[in-house]
Each structure stands twice: as C-alpha cells, then as structure tokens.
Simulated scan of single mutants.
Amino acid sequence: MRSKTLKFGKGFRVAFDVRKAQAAEMVIAPGGSEGGPDNRHRGADQWLFVVSGSGVAIVEGRRVPLKAGTLLVIEKCERHEVRNTGRELLQTLNFYYPPALDADGEPKGPGRG
C-alpha cells in the first residue's frame, strides 16, 4: 500500500507509480496551458479528473469543457492540450496506464511520446 497527501501546487508532479499505473497532479495557472497540438502519449491512456477550476481540453481538435468533477479519458495517441480558461488555478488529478512520464514530466517507457 502507498499513500500520499497531494498539495496541488502549480505545475506537474508525479505522485507515484506502480507496476501498471501512475498518478500525477497537474495545476495550471489562469491563462496557462499544458501540452499542445503535437502532445500525445503513444503508449498510455490518460485519465484526467478536474478537482477545481475551469478550462478546456482540446483532444484531436475537439473542445471539451472542464470544470470541477469532470472526468476525461484521453486515449493513447490522441493529440491533446489542456488550457485554464478560468480565474483560479485549474487543479487536476491524472492517471496514466501504463506509466507515461518521469518525475520531471518527460515521456518514459511504453508511454513515450
């Protein structure tokens, strides 16, 4: 068993990973974004849960509104970007299957871009 209290400070942080999955917190400041038109995880699905704030995810050109309680699954190979369109921090909890990123947010292993 593993446990951790998340702080949801600005930026991207891997909480921890186990054999086949990874948890990370991603916090985007108002007006900011993560990813971009070429951002994708070739070998991993990303489950994004919005803890607080609001924004939009652009997945394969489709806009998906984000608000607290939204759960979005970005399947492997789908190009995506997450933008904060609100006035407060956009706080998200993300799960990658299999683990896709190292502690610095760089691609690793099967999820490598």
Rank of each mutant, 00 (worst) to 15 (best):
H41A: 10
D45L: 09
V18D: 06
G53C: 04
L72G: 08
L90P: 03
G9Y: 12
F12K: 14
I74Q: 07
G43P: 05
A24G: 04
L101S: 10
N84T: 06
L93Y: 11
S33G: 00
N84V: 11
I74V: 15
F12Y: 15
H80W: 08
L6V: 14
R87A: 13
I58A: 11
S33R: 04
L90A: 02
D17I: 01
L6M: 12
M26C: 12
A29I: 01
C77Y: 08
T92C: 11
I58L: 13
P65G: 03
K20L: 10
L72A: 11
G43R: 07
G36S: 03
G31C: 06
D38I: 01
N84W: 07
P30D: 01
W47C: 08
Y97T: 13
W47K: 03
E88I: 05
K7P: 00
E60Y: 08
E34Y: 12
D104R: 15
M26N: 12
K10V: 14
F8R: 02
A21H: 01
Y97F: 13
D104G: 15
I74L: 09
K20N: 15
R87T: 12
F95D: 02
Q22L: 02
G35F: 00
E106M: 11
N84D: 07
A57S: 06
T5F: 00
R79T: 07
V56K: 14
D45C: 07
D45T: 07
T92P: 06
V50K: 01
V14C: 08
K76N: 13
Q22N: 04
E88A: 14
D104K: 15
E106D: 11
D38V: 02
A103G: 09
R79N: 08
W47T: 10
V59R: 10
G31S: 03
V51R: 12
I28Y: 10
T92W: 03
L66M: 06
T70S: 14
T85W: 11
R42A: 11
Q46A: 14
G31I: 10
V18C: 05
A57Y: 03
G32C: 02
R13P: 00
I58K: 15
A29P: 12
K67G: 03
E81F: 05
R79Y: 06
G86T: 08
G11F: 06
S33L: 04
A23V: 15
A23E: 06
